[in-house]
């Protein structure tokens, strides 16, 4: 059955208001939407990060479901323990019914410090969904670069200066790394396309075994945008093909959204303060390099999904 908001709105809100995420936080939208997909008992594990901090400031918790935060780099290992405990106790008849397990981590806790823990848990084949809410930097500690930070983005540890134009590297392709574990399901999503995203979470939760969703999440503080545009800005990441929506199901790639007109990356760059320096004429070659990288990644993806390559609309 197709998802519709009227039906979803009748379900209990699993994340209580009163959390202390910034007004207009894109990550908490991604968390909230993921929870809209949940049916039945679920346990959530969290890596240290913005969402962990802002939803559980003692003595308050926003979680209406069981929740565990252990440390920064080990959300996947921790949920492995929870899930294994469930299997053990169920096998012994000490617990009944079914249960789902979701681990959340930001890009710092997933692409960087938590990658080993994630890889281990994926390889072992635990029955859990890992959702990386990817805002492209260590926002919780004050906008430091991560391996998910876009090319040339200015962060506090990759600032744009007189001679260095922000981050020197392109982000690693974590979704591909996860897919290389041959897990049954890995996908990329964006909260602006809630139907696609919530549908993916539902799908992932229904699959037995390790599943993964990499969801782009805006951070107006780190991206230097307006809080009101938190949804627009991730939509544009998809329209420029910086953040394609696709899924890998049992090794088969499927494109979930193809922009009618593939927008130039400049359209996304120019509305974010973190790329402000790039608009300088002297950095035209860098903008071209950025565009070339997007085009190359997009073409490579289309080759895997069997879709046609689109030219950038100019």
């Amino acid at each position: 059955m197709a998802l519709n908001l009227k039906e979803l709105s009748k379900k209990p809100e699993l994340l209580s208001p009163g959390h202390r995420a910034c007004a207009g936080c894109g990550s908490v939208i991604a968390i909230r939407q993921a929870l809209m997909a949940v049916e039945g008992p679920v346990v959530v594990g969290f890596a240290t990060g913005c969402m962990e901090v802002s939803t559980t400031i003692y003595p308050y918790t926003s979680w209406r479901i069981p929740y565990i935060h252990d440390a920064f780099e080990n959300a996947a290992a921790t949920i492995s323990g929870v899930e294994t405990a469930f299997r053990s106790l169920k096998k012994q008849g000490k617990i009944k019914g079914d249960m789902k397990f979701i681990a959340f981590g930001g890009d710092g806790g997933t692409y960087d410090i938590g990658l080993q823990s994630l890889s281990g848990a994926l390889e072992r084949g635990h029955d859990f969904l890992y959702i990386c809410y990817n805002n492209g930097a260590y926002m919780n500690t004050g906008i430091q670069r991560s391996s998910a930070t876009p090319f040339c983005a200015a962060t506090t540890t990759s600032p744009a200066g007189e001679v260095v134009p922000g981050k020197a590297q392109f982000p690693k392709d974590l979704t591909a790394i996860v897919a290389a574990h041959h897990v049954p399901y890995a996908a990329q999503a964006s909260p602006h396309n809630w139907r696609d995203y919530i549908g993916k979470v539902k799908k992932a939760l229904a699959i037995e075994g390790p599943t993964f969703i990499n969801v782009i999440a805006s951070c107006f503080r780190g991206w230097r945008t307006e809080p009101t545009t938190s949804i627009d800005i991730v939509k544009m990441a998809v329209e420029t093909c910086f953040w394609p929506l696709y899924e890998v199901e049992n090794g088969e790639y499927k494109l979930n959204y193809k922009p009618k007109e593939k927008l130039p990356i400049e359209e996304w760059i120019k509305v974010q303060g973190r790329f402000k320096h790039l608009l300088d004429e002297k950095y035209k070659p860098l903008r071209e390099e950025f565009q070339a990288n997007v085009d190359q990644e997009w073409a490579a993806l289309l080759e895997k999904t069997g879709d046609q390559v689109q030219k950038v609309a100019v």
Binding site: D70, A77, S80, G81, V82, T84, A85, R87, Q92, S117
Partner: peptide
């Protein structure tokens, strides 16, 4: 034994999984 082993990829994950399992309610 009835034990479920978790053959983790590091000791850091061993203790992390122990924390998760113990919090879940298992003897670890």
């Amino acid at each position: 034994v009835q034990t479920e082993m978790i053959l983790v990829e590091s000791e850091h994950s061993a203790m992390s999984a122990a924390v998760g399992a113990s919090a879940a309610g298992a003897r670890v």
